[in-house]
Computed example of a mutant assay.
Amino acid sequence: MATNIGDEATEANAGTCGCGCGTGGEGDRHAIAVDGAIKDRNLKRLRRIEGQVRGLQRMVEEDRYCADIMTQIASVHEALRSVGRELMRNHLKHCAAGAITSGGDGAEKMYDELIDMMYKNVR
């Protein structure tokens, strides 16, 4: 069976976070130092994206022109990438920076987590 690059790091870090913000499963982890304005901006973007996706569903139901649907899909992708960039910036600024400067095992876990995130997000 073939494995994806980064699977080993993911399995090794299952249930842990490099920044030490939580030791339970992924549902138990929380971000560190989220700026309220950034959070509000991301929530607004995500609500807008949700509306765009509902619009895509209508376009498909109405048998709209494929190229038009593909244009809207590209728009949704870019909007999601924008939210991802904001989240990555916050993660690097707070979670990763703290874990890396503390050194030791936490830093090593954070390096693995960041490499895993990069592999997942360059697709």
Rank of each mutant, 00 (worst) to 15 (best):
H30M: 10
D112C: 01
K93M: 09
Q52R: 11
S75Q: 11
L46Y: 02
G98N: 10
G22S: 08
A67S: 04
R58G: 14
A97K: 13
I49H: 02
G15L: 08
N4F: 08
L87S: 03
G24V: 10
Q72G: 14
E78G: 12
L56R: 08
Q52W: 04
G20I: 09
G55T: 07
E61G: 11
C95D: 15
N4A: 14
G18R: 05
E8G: 13
M59S: 12
C19P: 13
A99M: 09
R64V: 02
R54L: 12
D63P: 08
A31K: 03
V34P: 05
N42Y: 00
R47I: 04
M117G: 00
D105Q: 14
V76G: 12
D112P: 00
R41T: 09
G36T: 07
R45N: 10
A74S: 15
A31G: 10
G55N: 14
C21H: 03
E78N: 12
I115E: 10
R54W: 08
T3H: 15
G55F: 05
D116E: 07
N121M: 07
R45L: 06
I38P: 02
Y111S: 06
C95A: 11
A67V: 10
A12T: 14
C19T: 10
T23F: 04
G84S: 13
G55K: 12
R58M: 11
A107S: 12
L87G: 02
C21T: 13
A9K: 12
L114S: 03
N42H: 01
G98L: 07
E11V: 13
E8C: 11
E11Q: 15
T71H: 15
I73L: 15
S102D: 03
S75C: 12
D7G: 09
K120M: 03
I49R: 00
E61S: 13
G98E: 09
S82P: 02
K39R: 12
R41N: 12
G20R: 14
D68E: 15
S75P: 05
D28L: 03
E61Y: 06
E113M: 04
V34F: 09
D105P: 06
S102I: 02
G36Y: 01
S102C: 03
K44S: 12
R89L: 05
G24F: 06
G25V: 05
N13S: 08
G51Q: 11
D35H: 07
G84I: 01
E50P: 06
S82E: 10
A2M: 15
R47Q: 15
E113I: 00
K44D: 11
R85D: 10
A74H: 12
K93W: 01
E113G: 00
A96D: 02
